[in-house]
């Protein structure tokens, strides 16, 4: 049942992704100097989400995996988002 084919990613692509990740890390630190009130955590989570997406897609080769595997990993993120959202149903109305 196994699909043992592997994909070799070009160094140029990996370098570009690394640069984008470094920029996003810089951005994460930079935005803390602004008072974004309730959106502070939201912005931090959004940037972290983009970084995770890039790491999963390129460094962990998810972009080149089967559709089933990509769907399964996507479900994990949807689940995480739902858990955060539902928790905030409590905090928003308390």
């Amino acid at each position: 049942m196994a699909n043992n084919s592997s994909h070799i990613t070009d160094y140029k692509v990996l370098t570009r992704v690394l640069l984008v990740l470094m920029f996003l890390t810089f951005l994460t630190i930079s935005v803390t100097s602004y008072n974004l009130a309730a959106f502070t955590v939201t912005i931090a989570l959004l940037i972290a989400g983009v970084k995770s997406f890039l790491v999963l897609s390129y460094f962990m080769h998810l972009k080149y995996e089967s559709l089933l595997l990509r769907i399964l990993v996507s479900i994990v993120f949807v689940l995480f988002a739902l858990i955060v959202l539902i928790t905030f149903i409590d905090y928003s109305y308390r």
Partner: peptide, 24 residues
């Protein structure tokens, strides 16, 4: 397994959680 992830709050009805969350 899927829905079971989203029902944890029924252990907390008397904890002081918001009414909307209890309903949900």
């Amino acid at each position: 397994a899927g829905v079971g992830f989203l029902v944890w709050g029924h252990h907390m009805y008397t904890s002081g959680m918001s009414n909307q969350a209890r309903w949900f």
